[in-house]
Design a protein around this nucleic acid. Sequence first.
DNA 1: ATGGTTTTTACTGCGTC
DNA 2: GACGCGGTAAAAACCAT
Length: 324
Amino acid sequence: MTDSRIRSRSDERRSSEREESTEQDERERCPECGGRLRSDSEHAETVCQDCGLVVDEGEIDRGPEWRAFDSSEKDEKSRVGAPTTNMMHDQGLSTNIGWQDKDAYGRSLSSRQRQKMQRLRTWNERFRTRDSKERNLKQALGEIDRMASALGLPENVRETASVIYRRALEEDLLPGRSIEGVATSALYAAARQAGTPRSLDEIAAVSRVEKDEIARTYRYVIRELGLEVQPADPESYVPRFASELELSDETERRARQLLQTAKEEGVHSGKSPVGLAAAAVYAAALLTNEKVTQNDVSEVASISEVTIRNRYHELLEAEGGAPV
DNA sequence: ATGGTTTTTACTGCGTC
DNA sequence: GACGCGGTAAAAACCAT
């Protein structure tokens, strides 16, 4: 009697699961029979529901395998430290010996113990940054961090930059190039990939490396790593320029609009995205009667006034040709 | 290296405050 | 007269070949 109840309940569960999975993910199809795929995170597989073909195996579930129902359970069940991060040279996994001379109960150590701990700290530090690659990374990541905060780039960009640098290091791209150069290039690439691009000039302003070298190493790194970085979208510069010039949201919106229509008209191929963005901001300010001089815009965008003039004529022309 | 394209530099004239 | 703006020519920078 109990048996049948249990079975029936589990049957229910199974059928409801199936219903769920038929609803999910219509676009993925089985390459064999065209049946629906069902991802089974418990077994780390993606299987076809019709023919049973396992399409994808070994997905990694990075989440915890337990669930916590209140905060005390969370403390009890959790047995890991901070998540690993690529922003530290050892991904945050190395040993750290605290600087307080206290034991696990918070009592102070005897002087003998203190000396011992001091020696341990020294050696730990030596081992931690032992080989040249580690030291290299440590310096580069410090550099990336410094530049990123100088440019006001968010954390995820730093993270990406770190990953790129790490890869460059692994592929032995460093010999013959400066650490700083590669670090800067990594950051430049990361910023562009994240859709918060900074122009080469801006990057060069905070880097210890010359613009030429940055550009050169950047191209090299991109090519060697097979990174795909699309040309920067002019629109992604607009918010930054607009806010630096203290322009209204309305102006920002118009600037975007101008760029959109320009894009449709195909006015912008081959032109520098920064110039286009600057021109759009200027033109938009004109349209909304906000006072910004070409000089102002040229300064925040680090682009010449002439370029702004040329571009914004084209922009207005495109807008006039295709009214909204 | 070269040639074509884009951007910058430098200079000039015009109108306005 | 200083400033913002527009235009132009020549130089420089950039990019693909």
